[in-house]
Every structure is written in C-alpha cells, then in structure tokens.
Computed example of a mutant assay.
Amino acid sequence: MFLTSDEQFRRQYFLSSQIPVFVLIIIFMIPQLKWNLLIQKAYSFIFFKKKYNVLAWIVNNQESHILIVIIILAGVWIYSSLCLIGLYNRLKRNRGTPAPAQKKQKFVTLTREYNKGMLNFFLSLILPLITSFSLIDYPITSLIELIIIECLIYDFFKKSSSFFPNITLLVIHNVNLFLGKTLDGDRVYCFVLGKPIKQVVGKKVEVRYLTSGEYPPDQNICIYVKKEL
C-alpha cells in the first residue's frame, strides 16, 4: 500500500494499527495471573525472608512466562502508542502547509472509497490473533508465533497495493483514509484529518504529499489541505 513512503512512516503506521491486538491480548492474559502468589514471592525475595532461585523460577514456571509476555506486550504497546503520536503529528504538520506541486498534482478528486477493510481487518486479523494462540498454556511459544505473523503481515503490507486499515488512527484522531485520483489520473491515498466524510467525499481537494519534492507517480500518499471552492 505504501511502497513509495519512507521506512519511518511505514513503521509508525503499521505498529499504531496493531495497538488493538496488543491491548486485547494483554486484557485477556492479565486475569490469568495468580497475583497473590506473585506478590508473595516478590515480597519474600526482596526482603530476604525466603530466597528463591529466580532464574529457575523464570525458566520453569508458567506464571513467570505469562508475566514476561505481558511485560513485553506492554512495552510494545507503549512504543506503538508513541508511533501513533508521531504519525498523527506528522500528518498534522504536513496538513498545515500547501504543497508547492503543480495543479495537476496537488489537486485530487476523492472517490467514494474510504476506510476500506475495517470490518474485514477486525474479523480476519484481530480476532484470530487473540483466539487461535494458546496464550495461557504456551505463552512464550504464542508470543514467538505472534511476532512471526506480525513480521509477515508487515512485509506484505510494504509490498501490497491494497488498503491497510488503521482503526486506531480513525477512532482516536478521526483520520479517514480515502482513495483519490489526480488530474492526470494517478491513484493516491489521501489522509483527511478531522473532517466529516460527507463534506469531502467525491470532492476535488488540495493536498500536500508526504515527502516534499516527490509527486505522482513517485509518491502516492498525501494529506488533505483544503477543499477547492
């Protein structure tokens, strides 16, 4: 979908889109922990009332494996949230300045295709990811499987021309993704920030491209600036 975008944008967009996966898995796993036992062991170890072989407990105890997975996913969630903030700030910053491109490049007609694949994304990706793994019985193995699948999805996402929905960006920041066409007929993806869909769908709008100095067909990602009068 974003073959012409830079690596930072792809990483921010992909990781922020996966926030629901990380959050739902964490919510599912937290109740499975025996918190009283964990607190008791930690208290006993810290205050030297009873010494434990911490390494052996981490390696052999399933409770520790679940806790490790939760900590790792929480860290990824925090990093993904930072990616979301960085992505939104980048879009907002680009939106504030009209592009120096030619009229045939910077004016885009937004089609009636927008936010495609949201439901399919939820049903075909998020639900299987949080229900198909044996997160409680084999937490470490499930985490490795999740990482492999996420890497494969990211690789496909870099090389595919299909819409890749970002539910988090839509829900938290009201950013809609439209398919548009320039006056030359080049297809572009246009982010529209904070505008009701009915006000811009099917309209000709002025846009700014994500990477300054690169225009269609070398660049296909743009940000809505204003509607043409």
Rank of each mutant, 00 (worst) to 15 (best):
M1V: 06
M1G: 09
T4R: 10
S5M: 11
F9I: 13
R11P: 03
Q12S: 09
Q12Y: 08
Y13P: 10
Y13A: 14
F14S: 05
L15N: 12
S17T: 05
S17F: 03
I19C: 01
F22Q: 03
L24Q: 12
I26Y: 10
P31H: 08
P31I: 11
N36P: 00
Q40C: 04
A42T: 06
A42K: 05
A42S: 13
Y43E: 14
F45I: 08
K49I: 06
K51M: 14
N53H: 09
W57G: 12
V59Y: 07
V59N: 12
N61P: 00
N61Y: 02
N61G: 15
N61W: 00
H65Q: 11
H65L: 05
H65N: 10
I66D: 03
I68T: 14
L73D: 02
L73H: 06
A74C: 12
V76L: 13
V76R: 12
S80H: 02
L82A: 07
L82R: 13
L84I: 12
I85E: 02
L87D: 02
R90M: 00
K92N: 06
N94P: 01
N94T: 11
Q102H: 02
K106H: 03
F107M: 12
V108K: 11
T109R: 15
T109P: 01
T109K: 15
R112C: 02
R112K: 12
N115S: 04
N115A: 05
K116N: 05
K116G: 00
N120E: 01
F121L: 00
F122Q: 03
S124G: 06
L127M: 05
P128V: 10
L129F: 09
L129W: 03
T131P: 00
S132N: 03
S132P: 00
I140S: 08
T141A: 08
S142E: 01
I144N: 07
I144T: 10
E145F: 14
E145L: 14
L146W: 01
I147A: 07
I148E: 07
I149T: 13
E150N: 10
C151P: 07
Y154A: 06
K158H: 03
K158V: 01
K159P: 02
K159H: 13
S161M: 07
F164D: 01
P165R: 02
I167L: 09
N176R: 09
N176S: 14
L177Q: 15
L177D: 02
L177K: 07
K181L: 14
T182Y: 03
T182E: 14
L183K: 10
D186E: 12
D186K: 04
Y189R: 05
C190P: 01
C190M: 06
F191H: 10
L193Q: 06
P196F: 07
P196K: 14
Q199Y: 01
G202V: 07
K204T: 14
V205W: 07
V207E: 09
Y209P: 13
Y209K: 10
L210P: 04
T211E: 10
S212H: 11
P216L: 08
P217Y: 09
Q219M: 14
Q219N: 07
I221P: 08
C222F: 07
C222Q: 12
I223G: 05
Y224S: 02
V225A: 11
K227M: 03
E228D: 11
L229R: 15
